[in-house]
């Protein structure tokens, strides 16, 4: 289990308890977090589940694989701290993670 907080573009916070065995994207979609579109359902094909990761968490997440790196390269609204939530499995180590949702996934 991990408590993960999503900050919407207008500053509204949405904290979700997520069980393991799924990705952060799946946990967010189930909890109806607005702004995580996840069009491809987790195939790392669409880059519409992008978030900005708080600085103190950047080094604690599993490293980006080449799929994710390539998708992020030309993702709209991308920043150096962008991650695709479909590529981050939920683990206990993510407890307390805070991410920010971009203004749009397109």
């Amino acid at each position: 289990m991990a408590k993960i907080t999503f900050e919407e573009p207008d500053g509204k916070l949405h904290t979700v308890d997520m069980a393991g065995g799924q990705s952060v994207m799946e946990g967010a979609v189930k909890a109806m977090v607005a702004g995580i579109d996840a069009d491809c359902g987790g195939a790392c094909s669409c880059a519409t589940c992008m978030v900005y990761v708080a600085a103190e968490w950047e080094g604690k997440l599993p490293a980006k694989q080449s799929d994710e790196k390539q998708m992020l390269e030309f993702c709209p609204h991308v920043q150096p701290n962008s991650r695709l939530t479909c590529q981050i499995p939920v683990t206990d180590a993510l407890d307390g993670l805070t991410v920010k949702i971009p203004p749009s996934q397109h």
């Binding site: 799924q22 799946e26 979609v29 189930k30 109806m32 491809c40 359902g41 195939a43």
Partner: peptide, 27 residues
Amino acid sequence: YQRPPLSKKFLAGELAFDRLYVRPAAF
């Protein structure tokens, strides 16, 4: 539910049944 994984990860047994659902029943 999502159909794309039917011919990919779900067929291969790499994705559990309940992960096919677009949204959970609670939604």
